[in-house]
Every structure is written in C-alpha cells, then in structure tokens.
Simulated scan of single mutants.
Amino acid sequence: MKTPPVVSAEEWEAERRNLLVQEKELTRARDALAAKRRRMPWVRVDKPYVFEGPDGEVSLLDLFAGRRQLIVYRAFFDPGVGDWPHRPCAGCSLVADQVAHTAHLNARDTTLVFVSRGPQAEIARMKDRMDWTMPWYTMTDGFDVDHGVDEWHGHNAFIREGDTVYRTYFVNGRGDEVMGGTWAYLDITALGRQETWEDSPEGYPQSPPYQWWNWHDSHDS
C-alpha cells in the first residue's frame, strides 16, 4: 500500500483548503441539480395499483399515509431471489440499514416506504430480525415493471394533488448509493427540502432552516 506523504500541520491545512474549494463547487452543483429536479415535469399515475400491507390491501394513494409526497424503494426480497426467504439481497439490505429516522421526512410531508414481492408474514419476520422499522409492502401487480424496478432496485418519487398521484422522479443504480439520509431523500422529491434558501418555483412551501428541525420524537409538538 503506497501511502501519501507525511507533512506538517500547516501543509496539511493548506491542502485541505485547496480541496475544500472543489468540495464547495460540488455542493453548489448538487444544489443546482436538485433545483432542476423540482422543475421536472410530472406524469400522472392512473393505474389502480394494489399492495398488501400488515392490515390488508392498500392502494398507491394509501401509501402516502395522508402526506403530500411519497418515496417508494423497490427492494428485492422476493421468492426465488438471492437468499430467500432468509434475507433480502445484500445490496438492498445495505440500503435499508442506512435509512434515517423517518419522522424527519414525515415532518416535511413526505412518506418513505419499501416494497417487494415477499408476503407480509416473511417481511414482518425479516424486519424484526434486522431491526428495520420502515413501512414495507408487498407488490401484487405490475407496479415494478411500470416504474423501472422489475429487474433492479430503485427509488421512485411521487406527489399527490388531492387524490391524483403523479410520478416526479426516479433514481437507481449508483444513484441509490447516496440514499438513506433525510437530505438525500428530500433532494429527489418535487418539493425538495422546503427551505427558504432553495431555488424552487414560485409558491412552493418553504420555511427557514432550523425552524422545522427537531428531535425525532418531538416533531408533532
């Protein structure tokens, strides 16, 4: 292993500041890209998709849980795939392990759910074993085929206007690597982080940073 040179603290700080310039350029570019996502056109979802949940059948609209936005991650915990029925694929499990507390997403009117084709009894057993708490539903129809996740994992973002649902964005492949944190999830949604510093279309909901930040057990207050 050929390691970098060892330098003085002053030289190290100078190198760090040089790299920081590029890091800030990347941050600004990431913010600009998120702003373009918020201006992406929407596509209306008209098919009556049906999922199985812990309490029975639910629709795509039901997955919103009354909130305005929805992020659906397609995980591969399916009969005949990988180490079924013992655990999901390793990559999807790594994604699940990184999911931040969903109360912060909920505070931004956004719901996160996982979906796969495994039956609910197996999903409940697996979630208990792995200490996962996110809502997890069973697909029963062609939702995965229609949304680009029948052969590979991915995150689909949706928004609703009343009872009408629209698909707003989609990431998969290496795009899934950054998912898991609250900010990464919000950055792929149509409304973004909903903070006043963001470049968003006129009329989008926004509030100052820190104003809505809270402990995960105190958002309702």
Rank of each mutant, 00 (worst) to 15 (best):
A90R: 02
G66Y: 06
D31S: 10
G148R: 04
W132F: 13
V6H: 03
V115C: 06
A90N: 03
R17I: 15
Q98M: 14
G80I: 11
N106R: 14
T111W: 05
L20Y: 09
V7Y: 14
G53C: 00
M134W: 06
M130P: 04
V95P: 00
L20Q: 04
R17W: 11
G80E: 05
R39Y: 11
G66F: 10
I71Y: 05
C92T: 03
L26R: 07
G53E: 00
V7R: 12
R17E: 15
E52F: 07
V45R: 00
E52L: 13
V149Y: 04
V81K: 10
Q98K: 14
M130V: 08
R16K: 02
A103H: 07
H104V: 13
S93D: 08
E151H: 08
M126E: 09
W84I: 00
E151P: 02
D97Y: 10
W84E: 01
N106V: 15
C92R: 00
A29F: 11
Y73N: 11
D128N: 06
S59T: 15
P41V: 03
V6M: 05
F64I: 09
Y73P: 03
F143C: 08
P48E: 01
Y73K: 05
K24Y: 15
K36L: 14
P85I: 09
V6N: 04
G80S: 08
V6Y: 06
L70F: 12
R125V: 12
T111I: 08
G148Q: 02
D83A: 15
V43N: 06
A100M: 15
P119D: 00
E151M: 13
G82K: 08
R39I: 10
V72Y: 01
L26M: 07
A75Y: 08
T111R: 09
V72L: 06
D144Q: 12
P119C: 01
V149N: 01
M134S: 08
I123A: 07
A65W: 02
T27Y: 12
A9V: 02
A14Q: 11
G142F: 11
K24G: 04
A35Q: 03
C89L: 15
E52M: 09
W152A: 11
D144P: 10
V149S: 08
R17A: 14
V149G: 08
W136I: 14
L61A: 10
S8L: 04
V58T: 05
F64D: 05
A29N: 09
T102P: 04
F77Y: 10
R37N: 12
D46M: 14
R16M: 03
D144W: 13
A65S: 02
